[in-house]
Amino acid sequence: MRRKLPQIIVAAVGLIMFLVYFSGHPTAQRVNQTILVDYWQIIFAFTLIVGVIGFARSNLQQIQRGDGRFFRIVSLVGLVSMPILALIGGINAGSPFVWMFDHVQAPMQATVFALLAFFVASAALRGFRARSVPAAILLLAATITLLARSDVGGATIAWLPETAEWIRAHPSMAARRAILIGIGLGSLTTSLRILIGIERTWLGSER
């Protein structure tokens, strides 16, 4: 029953959502609205609670073991302090919550993201090799695109922007379309397998 019940719920809700999606009937629209606005929000709230508890428990265990103690304490302080700041001072402009977001979280995230540029430079030096014909073609396409997107290359070499646009509009778009169609077909078959109960890995192990 522990496995059958979730399967029945998933199949029933999946089928209902599928039918109401294509129906213009007012009852169907009402059901759709209730599920999308109310049920989904309630489920999201619970997943958030599960996530917070899991994060806090995992970090507390690591602190007890003495593994990266300082960073884990900072994480937990952040986890606790942000909701407290929001509850005390609200979330409007000028509040301590927004100040922390603007002056701590946003710069930290932008810094981590900016580090990617350094990794790209390092990878370009050590890993991007023309070892084979496909790799050489990829290298050439990347070179043309990078040059065209830079102010210097695009402005000084007349044929560069057109060539870069051709690469983007033809080979790149063909590959993108193939990937998108593949993802679409994969999602469709996986959804069907879940709905009719063939795919059961999402239920976890038998125990």
Binding site: A121, L125, R129, L146
Partner: peptide
């Protein structure tokens, strides 16, 4: 920011060329 981005693009290109020559 465009000039900085353009310079970083050219820098990455230079890295690719140097890396391949060394290889």
């Amino acid at each position: 920011g465009l000039l900085a981005q353009s310079v970083s693009h050219l820098y990455v290109l230079a890295m690719i060329i140097i890396g391949n020559l060394l290889w």
